[in-house]
Amino acid sequence: MTEKESYSIQLDEVDWNDASCLITYGPLPDKLTLSIQTVGLIQKPLLQRNRDGLLRIVCGSRRLAVCQQLGLEPLSCEILPTSISPETCLRMAIYDNIAQRDLNPVEKSLVLTKMAQHEDQAQLIQEFMPLLNLEPSTVIFGRYKKLLLMEESILDAIAGGTLHERIGFVLSPLEQGDRFAFFNFFQELPFSVSVQEELVETVVEIGRRDNLTPREVLDSAEVNDLRRAHKRSARQRVQEIRKQLLATRAPRLTAREERFDREVGKLKLPAGVRVVPPPYFEGPRWSLECTFERGDELATRLRQLAELADQPEFKQIMESE
């Protein structure tokens, strides 16, 4: 056990700029404020006196911030001796936090980044990633470390849960302007996380192919028209924008799908019958869906289909251009 002593401190003794053990990120929880307001500080914050005589916060940064907001002082705190190493202080901060709550992705990133200054990467991955409910992998470690390089408003959104960390991972390697173009886009329309991921990949690839920045792709007339089509529901706009961008990225597949729809339309298939091409038109397995209610209805449909299968128009559908 580490030796610590209780002291009564004034808030101007706290070094608010020393973030070496700070691993909390995000707005102060209302419930914490309410609790301190109502019953005062139940658990004492832990601090350590630094070389300048000021107090470095080890555990309890949010409790202290609430007390500062509420102007509550003096406060009873526990003070660690100066002999305790910075690494041990940081470990205390981490273990104290993970024992109480789940950390948000930005906080996980803070833990990994700060511990990386003290510990070898392989050991860090093995010890801390499982503690943070993360798979111990170098790739995931790298992704979390890069999160922190992004701007505050994006980190706020990730910490607050309005932007998924998976999207943070794909935005972090981009240029700042491109990153914000995506960020604003995703804040504006209700894309699911997997569609957001798909769109970042699609837009970046279109840009690379066409020599445009991702921002320019997102700002194209086609996308903007759909974005501003306020008469349609947000959900419809999301679907249309996605379709538009996928078509730009995959013009051959889109052309083939359109041709397929046109040709199937001309066939005048019986009601309740649908021809389904193989996924991406790859491979020989086409299928036919037929819904019916009675046996005689099925017999009629099958007769109609047998005639249809012999028609050149039907065979043409299955051939490429």
Binding site: R249, A250, P251, R252, L253, R256, P279, Y280, F281, E282, G283, S320, E321
Partner: peptide, 16 residues
């Protein structure tokens, strides 16, 4: 443009 083939590999669209 690439599509996932039947073997899981990415390949050009069949028409190309």
């Amino acid at each position: 443009e690439f599509i996932p083939g039947l073997d899981g590999k990415l390949r050009y669209f069949r028409d190309l």
